[in-house]
Write a protein that binds this DNA or RNA. Sequence first.
DNA 1: TAGATTGTTAATCGATTAACAATC
DNA 2: TAGATTGTTAATCGATTAACAATC
Lengths: 219, 219
Amino acid sequence: MASKKSVSDAVIKRLPRYFRYLSDLLEFGINRISSMELSKRMGITASQIRQDLNCFGGFGQQGYGYNVESLFREISTILGLDNKYQTVIIGAGHMGQALANYSNFEKRGYSLAGIFDNSPDVIGMKINGVTVADIETLEAFVKTHKVDIAMICVPYGHTRSVAEKAARCGIKGLWNFSPMDLKLNYDVIIENVHLSDSLMVLGYKLNEHISGNLPGNRQ
Amino acid sequence: MASKKSVSDAVIKRLPRYFRYLSDLLEFGINRISSMELSKRMGITASQIRQDLNCFGGFGQQGYGYNVESLFREISTILGLDNKYQTVIIGAGHMGQALANYSNFEKRGYSLAGIFDNSPDVIGMKINGVTVADIETLEAFVKTHKVDIAMICVPYGHTRSVAEKAARCGIKGLWNFSPMDLKLNYDVIIENVHLSDSLMVLGYKLNEHISGNLPGNRQ
DNA sequence: TAGATTGTTAATCGATTAACAATC
DNA sequence: TAGATTGTTAATCGATTAACAATC
């Protein structure tokens, strides 16, 4: 219950990056790294790395640096990757199907428990071993399966109502793929993925680049 | 050639949000809005809106506010949505197929010119009207089609080499879906989409939430 | 021990917010 | 004109970077 002071969003968003770089280091068989060396690889300052990590604990050792394996485990724990999450996909269109086939998530502890849709065209279809069920059966499903996260891949117009349905069922995490900033009057955590926003940013930078004002990211 | 002072990344990333909210306002038939009113809708300060917009020009009118339609057009122009972009998808797996079927992009001026893969299993297949071609034919294709953006949806291990191939062909924008921070020694703009990072952030916040320290985003 | 590198405090920088004169 | 709201400058806040004493 001791409420530790909350960590800033900027730091939280960097955690998966640390996770990835440490994972790579492990693969390379490197078992010790200094903040200085890691900073060179990641393209951020050593200071920032030490500050970030010290939000969660003193994982290093003076004069030595960080043990890659133990730091990797710490970051994994912080990110909650030791936990198992049950997920469902709502919307079995192209994006839903792509997510259902994404094996990376399973590897990180996010396992796919169900897929739901409202269209008879896809209900009953099997995607990556999971049969698409009628969205009307979601509530009953959640009652028996303890679902943590709903990945929402329905068309724009259905997003809010589907998200509310999921929240009402007691699902606590929503991963929203519609181009809207989903906010609900429920006690849920929402993470928005805005692919079209990302593409527009790319387009903007491309224009800036072509119009000759700004450099690309040659390094 | 007059190099205007460059706009911060934080502002650039908000542009697509403005675009979306203005687009909604248009749909609602609202044709005038003050920074105050828009700030309430978007959940940011009116000050920030005025500061952001004034990076690009004085689009408002004292005593009146902003004309929604003209502001929408300005933002569209800033984002380069008046331009037509030719895109190719590299990697015709599930994610590549999902992107190929995303009609939103077409609507915003990003048109799909080709899909490439290295697997005989998918080469020749038709996705949303576009036939998957052999990746070996990419260079010849780019020579005749002026491709602006490559959407890279190949497995992790192939990402760097495929990205380099695209850059060598002269493609200036890369949209990378692999969980790595792609950096190349080419003069290209790279935008990384890290779905697994986003999911991990959701997982982190879910944990924080459950362990009782932090509020969800009830509003 | 001497050298290296952390954890942490202090300084700097940039982004956000507040305030208000300009002006429609 | 009076009222409203912008554009813009100044103040504040938070995040990043630098510095260094602690310590392995």
